[in-house]
C-alpha cells in the first residue's frame, strides 16, 4: 500500500508538471498582451512595460523562470489586479467558492442518494417516475435559469431570502440550492441505476433467501455496493463545485474564484491563468487519488496494489 501511494504521488507530480508545461506554451499562443490599456498605447510604450515584466524574453526563457519560481512556491503577480500576488488572489477567493461547493455537495449528495434509493426501491411506481422526472429536470435546466428563477421568486417576490451578496449563512442558501440541483440529479440517477442492478444480482437473492429482512438487505448489501460509481463521480464533482462556478457566483454576487478561470484568459493575465489552472489540476489529481483509495474501503473486491499479493 505504501509503495502504491508513493508511486501515485510521483505520477501526480509528473502529471502536474506536464499540465504546467502545456498550459504555459498554449497560453503564450494567445494573441494580444496582458496590458490593460493596450488600445491606447503606442508600440514603443508597450515595449517599455513588457520589458519590466520580462515578457520580451524568449518564451523558453520565461518558461524556465516560471518553473524556477513555481518550485519556490511563487506563482507571480497578476496583471489585471496590478501586482497582487497570485497566491493571495486565489487565497482570497477560494473561501466562498469552497464553502458553497461544500454545502452544495453535502446537501446534493444526501438528497440525491435518498432520491435514488427511493426510486430504485419503488421501481416502476409513481415514486420512481417522480424521482426520474426530478433528475431529468435537474440535469436539463441550466443552472443560470434556475438561479435566476430562485433569485426572482424567493428573493424578490417572496423576500424570504436575500437576493445576493455574501454576508452570512442565509446568503448562501439560494446559491447552494442552485448549485446542488445538478448534484442531486446526477447522484439520484446513478444511484437508481446502480441499485437496480445490485438488487437483481445473485448475492442479494442469496441474502434474501437466508431470510434477512428487506431493510437489512438494502442497507447492508445493496446501498454499500451501489456507492462505487457515486464515489467515482463525486471526486471530480467536488473539485468542480468547490473551485467556484462562474454563473452562480455572478448571479448571487459571491466573491469567489469561479470568474477568474475565464477572465484571466480573456485578459491574458498569464500568472493568473497558470495559477488557477495549476490549482484546479492539483485538486483534481488529488481528488482522483483519494477516490482510488476510497474504492478499496467501500469494496474490498477492489485491490489497489493490483497483482502485488
Amino acid at each position: 500500500m505504501a509503495r502504491y501511494v508513493m508511486k501515485r504521488i510521483v505520477y501526480m507530480v509528473i502529471t502536474l508538471f506536464i499540465i504546467a508545461t502545456v498550459t504555459f506554451f498554449l497560453m503564450k499562443l494567445l494573441p494580444g498582451s496582458p496590458l490593460q490599456n493596450q488600445e491606447k498605447l503606442t508600440p514603443e510604450q508597450r515595449q517599455i512595460i513588457l520589458e519590466k515584466y520580462g515578457l520580451n524574453d524568449p518564451v523558453p526563457v520565461q518558461y524556465v523562470r516560471y518553473l524556477g519560481n513555481l518550485l519556490k512556491g511563487d506563482l507571480g503577480v497578476s496583471f489585471q489586479y496590478d501586482n497582487r500576488p497570485v497566491t493571495e488572489l486565489i487565497g482570497e477567493r477560494i473561501g466562498p467558492s469552497a464553502q458553497l461547493g461544500f454545502q452544495a455537495i453535502v446537501f446534493g449528495t444526501v438528497v440525491g442518494l435518498l432520491l435514488g434509493i427511493f426510486a430504485a426501491i419503488r421501481h416502476n411506481t409513481w415514486g420512481d417516475y417522480t424521482a426520474t422526472v426530478i433528475s431529468v429536470l435537474g440535469i436539463s435546466i441550466p443552472s443560470f435559469v434556475l438561479a435566476g428563477f430562485l433569485q426572482y421568486f424567493i428573493g424578490v417576490k417572496l423576500q424570504w431570502l436575500p437576493v445576493a451578496f455574501w454576508e452570512g449563512f442565509e446568503y448562501t442558501i439560494l446559491p447552494t440550492l442552485a448549485l446542488s440541483v445538478s448534484v442531486i440529479a446526477n447522484i439520484a440517477r446513478f444511484m437508481r441505476t446502480e441499485m437496480l442492478e445490485v438488487l437483481s444480482s445473485d448475492y442479494i437473492l442469496t441474502a434474501r433467501a437466508k431470510g434477512i429482512s428487506n431493510a437489512a438487505v438494502i442497507v447492508r448489501h445493496a446501498i454499500r455496493n451501489s456507492l462505487i460509481p457515486i464515489i467515482t463521480i463525486l471526486g471530480p464533482m467536488i473539485v468542480n463545485l468547490m473551485t467556484g462556478t462562474l454563473v452562480i457566483e455572478n448571479i448571487f454576487a459571491v466573491p469567489g474564484l469561479g470568474e477568474q478561470f475565464v477572465r484571466s484568459i480573456s485578459l491574458n493575465d498569464y500568472p493568473v491563468i497558470m495559477g488557477t489552472t495549476l490549482f484546479y489540476s492539483a485538486l483534481l489529481i488529488l481528488a482522483i487519488f483519494i477516490v482510488d483509495i476510497l474504492y478499496g474501503v467501500v469494496d474490498p473486491r477492489i485491490r489497489l496494489a493490483g497483482g502485488n499479493k
Binding site: 433569485q151 426572482y152 428573493g155 424578490v156 423576500q159 437576493v163 445576493a164 451578496f165 455572478n250 454576487a253
Partner: peptide, 16 residues
C-alpha cells in the same frame, strides 16, 4: 459599494 456583475441581479437588488 458592492460588486455585482450580473445586471439582472443588480436590478433585483434595486427592486428590493
Amino acid at each position: 459599494v458592492k460588486v455585482v456583475k450580473d445586471t439582472a441581479t443588480a436590478v433585483n437588488l434595486y427592486e428590493t
